[in-house]
Design a protein around this nucleic acid. Sequence first.
DNA 1: TTCTTATATTACCAGATAGTTGTGTAGCGA
DNA 2: TCGCTACACAACTATCTGGTAATATAAGAA
Lengths: 109, 109
Amino acid sequence: MELSDSNASAIAERFKALGEPMRLRLLQALRAGECSVGDLAERTGGGQANVSKHLQVLLQQGYVDRRKEGTTSWYRITDPQVFTMCELVCGGLEEELDRKRKLLRRRKP
Amino acid sequence: MELSDSNASAIAERFKALGEPMRLRLLQALRAGECSVGDLAERTGGGQANVSKHLQVLLQQGYVDRRKEGTTSWYRITDPQVFTMCELVCGGLEEELDRKRKLLRRRKP
DNA sequence: TTCTTATATTACCAGATAGTTGTGTAGCGA
DNA sequence: TCGCTACACAACTATCTGGTAATATAAGAA
């Protein structure tokens, strides 16, 4: 798929959904397996409403799936490839840190 | 690298930098090779100041690098792995579209 | 029914962000 | 020197977004 103007927005939306610390923490928590909203609120230290709202974003972008059981909503990762992306970006982060360390060393020899 | 609370923000910043259509278009334009700000403004149809500002974001996150020559700034991709990420997210996008198409079919049989 | 639990939704506010306009700055040719 | 070009930066505005509090919904227990 090429990055045409029309789908640049759709791709950006998917990246934007991952561009939030709380949502990354939610995905990280879900890595252990299916969780309820309450579980996730406890694990991430977030408020119930806030966690629920962030989960809607992840749900809409298809990163997670939902299963209802009584009054409980169980969320789970739909596509583990999201962690491949995290690892890629982590690799870039390492390189970026190295680059910045070198710049600092060059400025303060 | 694990997704601890401390670096969740750093990782999110890197995703957030890609969560903008104009910045994706800039990267796409740079895929052809080194470009000046003027080139990029023309290719993306953005204003000079806006393009320059978005380039700072990509520069700070280490996605692009800059080389100055006279009054011209030449930008280029530093890490082509960003396109691997785009392809991953595009794959997810395809699956997501399929999923939504199936949902529509289920609702309107 | 009434109470409790679990989640979603709404309204609101403070802070962030994209885009534009105008200005500053640096290099270069006339 | 005086423009002219290319870019960066600051200020401003409209819009968006994260967090919270309050409310709505819905299921089950008492």
